[in-house]
Design a protein around this nucleic acid. Structure first.
Lengths: 148, 148
DNA sequence: TATTGTTATACTCTATAACTATA
DNA sequence: TATAGTTATAGAGTATAACAATA
């Protein structure tokens, strides 16, 4: 195995570890990973259905069901656009926003045992390396990434 | 936001990025993320159903269906243990093994554009930091982590 | 005609509860 | 009784295809 393979394996292993944390915390609030991410995306955006589908990498028909279930729980709401009456804008509700804040705090707390294995300098170095890797540091695309 | 929050967010963002790669490559082979992971786990193990459920963090009844579908596709096989006739051991088939190798190569190739953003020294540093973070470097648990 | 979103359909993933077989 | 695994059931997540409304 080359050194690069070792990095790729470490990325995959770490990602599954992080996903396990997100899945558990989501489940504790009756939220799937996708619903968790939906809530995270909506924290600072008010996209239309098609944009949401693109962000999440899902079909628009999937979004219909996803948003429908989140709306039924009072976490998000749909609004017709006045400009183009075909368009449906999705936004987070007050309740959804509060839940999103809580989730973020819980996720951060749950990851602390892992990040605490590194000293301050290493944490800073890792943050910078990950930001470089996933493009946050040099982003030019219009496709945003929320924290969730 | 504290410096630690920045690290936790970077971990979550990067993990979603990696999961998107795994999901896409899995889908190209008609495999869910879970099936992908199942194949990865079985590459160097021959666990019983209950062990698999523990590894994957799923209920044993979920594993019955998962293994059933993978078996129908000829990727894995079930075998009765001679010692304890309640136990079912799961192993990967030759076809499953070849597919797992292909998947690993594709995942590594798909991650290369990201890892290439770092110089050699940084890649080495990142590998070490991630290994420390997720415990590979100091693992004492009996619960193994496959690359997938 | 093209685009936005929903609906109908089918399949996978998942957990809970009840069950069978074995220990 | 306890454990290993399966099955029945129900619901969420997902994509494809067909559809309605609007542009």
């Amino acid at each position: 195995m080359t050194a690069d393979d070792a990095l790729e394996d470490a990325l995959v292993r770490t990602s599954f570890r992080v996903m396990a944390v997100l899945t558990r915390i989501g489940a504790e609030h009756d939220l799937s990973l996708t619903q968790l991410r939906l809530l995270g995306l909506l924290r600072d955006r008010r996209p239309r259905m098609t944009e949401l589908a693109t962000f999440l990498g899902l079909d628009k028909s999937t979004l219909s069901g996803l948003v429908e279930r989140a709306e039924r729980r009072g976490l998000v709401q749909r609004g017709k656009s006045p400009d183009d009456r075909r368009v449906v804008d999705v936004s987070i509700t007050e309740a959804g926003s509060e839940l999103a804040n809580l989730l973020q705090a819980e996720v951060r707390a749950a990851l602390t045992p892992f990040t605490d294995r590194l000293c301050t300098d290493d944490r800073r170095a890792l943050t910078h390396l990950l930001d470089t890797l996933s493009g946050t540091a040099t982003r030019t695309s219009t496709l945003p990434d929320g924290p969730l």
